[in-house]
Write a protein that binds this DNA or RNA. Structure first.
Lengths: 355, 355
DNA sequence: CTGAAAGCGCTTACAG
DNA sequence: CTGAAAGCGCTTACAG
């Protein structure tokens, strides 16, 4: 590879001159005549010069590489968030390095982040994150967590605002004439000392929206489910059992089944539709079903799923923008929170309430 | 951040000594007494030293950063391949940087690869790739293409071998008693001057497997479809029309409809099932349907889809292993091809042929 | 306006 | 066995 020195000798100027014109640096003490500037530029392209970004980073102490720490990158929502960050990074002239972490590898990945002198870190990690904040603080690297669901003790966080989507979904069902609406929520909190998760948040949102419309949520109209949606067990029949049970409980409710079921995630909604069909109910003829996420293949489902559209990509973009904003400024660890709104997309799994 | 010099002064040794013990370098001319070694190690940890990987790369001329150039990272098969490469990279002690490319940004991304002095590049790019090979060759960076479907003019390539999965699928259907099997193939070649794509390859595989079983493929038992599966139009009803037509042509065939339909991709299979249902046919009672890919959500479909399992992740791992193998060796651009086998997973969309 | 010089944090032959 | 020195490719005050 050819270097700045090569250009300098060939063009008969100093290395600093080359550095200045190649970086297009003008200003008070730098004024290089157009003639030499041209000559330098020409010999550079003619020799096929490619600056060494690494050396540049070492010398300047600045880097335009951002890290993205993620636990389960194969889950579509997580992945889409990464892609949002990637797209934004590229538009802003940064470069993205994704590091996957598990409980065992977390420490090593964090170490890599500081050894690579990353300019910032976006974090989407399940489990304890204190090590990340500790190390990153020590190395003065800004951190922002993204889509981490609930409360984060440190750093800036960017989270999805489920409220607008939830509101639109209920609005949609109400306009279709539904009043008996059930909800299938996350059953995971009971395994985590009652710690809230996004399912709990969505359930609360559901309840308050129902209330706003003056609609009752009878005892037993909210059921729970703990199916795995990624990992080795995802999709086995046993794994789906809890979703099936949650659906059946709704279908067999003593008040009669709800005319619409709102689910805390798309995978649940797909299970619900299957169970309804097996129970002889047509969707949306007899019962409407709404999901949450808008996974990419859900539009190919039969029927195409009406669902809340979570802003996965925008979440990543916003996180990246936060990082970009913090870089360069002196390090300020005071935490902030940014909300990104959700939407709703009506497809074919919802229809008029049966009369 | 504290540096080697800091450690050297504090421990009262030379910087080279520090470098040697921190890199655990022994050998002929290097022998550092255990006492000083210990002292260096201790002061390093005690001062919280973190080596600067960038500086190390500049000084040594080596880098453990690999690039992954990809066109449509949001399409599940493509990102699963990325994740395979990521996992393998991390296990091998490399680090992965993903760069997304479009027609417009390709040149810039390639430039970034060489400016970052990447150790290797994995390529999964739709369209012309000659620029990549040209630049990478100039910079002596090994390139391997992955999952690029058909013939690649340069570099090493890693591709999925669709044969075993296809074979298993037909075997499965035959054992269920099916003999009238239709195929829905890719219609894209007709828009690309007849250039083969993975759909064409799968169609050929289908035909030869049928022949091996002594089964006929009547005229009109292979239809074609050109639906978009990612991008803005994916999933709109108009977009799905071609898949619907391809299915109806099969269902209304003058010989009577096939008892099983094998599709060149999962999205098509999902459409087929929907159309069958609309036509009053139950799946798999009246007709069996097989997909191709094994997208993650296809197991939540109703019915859970029987499908060929493409080795997305393993493709990425193999590509990464190829890169790792080429690094360090003097640059050898002679092309090689590596096949990674596919499998088959029987779920609920296939059943005994109706009698 | 430009060049000589010191510096970024590291590696790596090479004397002694 | 260890240290002084040159080097990697760049940046950046600072003389002149």
């Amino acid at each position: 590879m050819i270097t700045m020195t090569d250009i300098a000798t060939k063009a008969g100027v100093s290395r600093s001159a080359v550095s200045h014109v190649l970086n297009d640096r003008h200003g008070e003490n730098i004024r290089i005549p157009d003639a030499t500037r041209q000559r330098i530029l020409e010999t550079a392209t003619e020799m096929g010069y490619r600056p060494n970004e690494l050396a540049r980073s070492v010398a300047s102490g600045k880097t335009r590489m951002i890290g993205y720490l993620v636990s389960e990158p194969n889950y579509e929502p997580y992945w889409n968030t990464i892609l949002g960050a990637l797209a934004e990074a590229e538009e802003l002239g940064f470069t993205l390095k994704v590091l996957s972490v598990t409980g065992q590898t977390l420490a090593e990945r964090v170490r890599q982040c500081v050894e690579l002198r990353l300019g910032g870190i976006i974090v989407r990690v399940i489990g304890d994150k204190s090590l990340i904040f500790k190390e990153a603080n020590g190395a003065q690297i800004p951190v922002v967590t993204v889509d981490e669901g609930v409360e984060q003790p440190f750093g800036s966080s960017v989270v999805a605002d489920d409220a607008p989507g939830c509101q639109a979904a209920i609005e949609h069902l109400v306009q279709l004439g539904h009043s008996r609406i059930g909800f299938i929520s996350s059953g995971f909190p009971q395994f985590n000392e009652g710690k809230k998760d996004i399912g709990s948040i969505r359930e609360e949102l559901f309840r308050s929206e129902m209330q706003r419309h003056g609609l009752e949520v009878p005892e037993g109209y909210v059921t729970r489910e703990t199916m795995a949606v990624f990992g080795p067990h995802a999709g086995t029949e046993e794994n789906m059992q809890s979703a099936r049970d949650a659906t059946l409980a709704l279908l067999e409710h003593s008040y009669g089944h709800p005319t619409a079921i709102f689910c805390w995630r798309d995978e649940t909604a797909m299970c619900v539709i299957r169970v309804c069909r097996q129970a002889g109910l047509s969707v949306p003829g007899d019962i409407s079903v709404v999901g949450f996420s808008d996974l990419s293949t859900v539009r190919f489902f039969d029927p195409p799923l009406s669902t809340v559209k979570s802003p996965w990509e925008e979440l990543g973009r916003t996180a990246m923008r936060q990082i970009a904003q913090r870089i360069g400024k002196e390090f300020t660890p005071e935490p902030t929170t940014h909300l990104v709104g959700s939407g709703f997309v009506a497809r074919k799994s919802t229809g008029p309430a049966p009369v």
